[in-house]
Nucleic acid binder design. Structure first.
Ligand SMILES: [Zn+2]
Ligand SMILES: [Zn+2]
Ligand SMILES: [Zn+2]
Ligand SMILES: [Zn+2]
Lengths: 135, 135
DNA sequence: CTTGACTCTAGACTATACTCCAAGGTTTAT
DNA sequence: ATAAACCTTGGAGTATAGTCTAGAGTCAAG
């Protein structure tokens, strides 16, 4: 059994983060000492590793919550369920990707139209474009 | 001169948003009535239009703050300054783009490895990969 | 037996961008 | 004259993901 600081350094997160995850129901230590210290088991170690891995591939804490439920009840869930979950996330990520690409292109268009010279920016096409009333 | 509700519907934002922008120094009405109602001038209308346009191309309110300073002091700034600002933002956006692409590919890899079948997810490669300790 | 390292809780604070609410004052229309 | 519509302020709440602090308790070593 590990104390919070030990698990924290093992998992590469802060003690505060562990307590934060606990508050949000992601990882609850299997035990407490008499004096109230959190004690984490091997299963808890696996769980935090799951959380960290899931974070790394872009899941939000909320989504990780749902993933953990899939994980825990995996004998009652099918591969289809899990794959669907991931595919939904891919759809969301894709939308975000398109948005950001659109933004990038808008910015690029603004940048390309500006001469970038030394003269005062009174006629700058960037400021001009942002000032445009009509749309 | 427009009252807050008039400017709000003209600009396509809420009254609350206008007050929020004011609190953050983005747009301060030129005048107030005796009873304290905000009154917005033509210049204010242009300013909110600038803000809305800048938001649409992906600038944060903080960046819009800086952009507005460029706008206001544009006779003392060069096209180079403005273009640099936009190019810095493009760099930031690009980094975000790469991050999200990485996430997308990770998720795609996870998804591709899962059979998506009807059988229980006890052996699901997705859950397995997220559970992996070593990295 | 005391010092330092560690832990506990509750709650405040960060950043981003609003949105909503309460309680009251003002304007406009009927 | 009165109700509806609009305005004011300050402050709380939303979502995301923590970080930090204060004040107090615990534990191991010298
Ligand atoms: Zn120029
Ligand atoms: Zn320019
Ligand atoms: Zn399968
Ligand atoms: Zn599977």
């Amino acid at each position: 059994m590990l104390k919070i600081g030990e698990l924290a350094s093992l998992a590469g997160v802060s003690r505060d983060t562990l307590r934060f995850y606990e508050k949000h129901g992601l990882i609850i230590p299997s035990q407490r000492t008499e004096s109230g210290y959190r004690l984490y088991s091997n299963i808890d170690v696996e769980r935090i590793s799951f959380i960290v891995s899931a974070k790394e591939v872009g899941f939000t804490l909320n989504e990780i919550h749902q993933l953990l439920e899939l994980e825990v009840t995996k004998d009652k869930k099918s591969c289809q369920d899990v794959k669907e979950f991931v595919d939904n996330k891919i759809t969301i990520v894709n939308q975000r990707l398109l948005e950001i690409e659109k933004i990038k292109h808008s910015l690029q268009t603004l940048s390309d139209a500006c001469c970038g010279g030394d003269e005062p920016a009174t006629q700058c096409t960037i400021l001009g474009a942002l000032n445009e009333q009509a749309r």
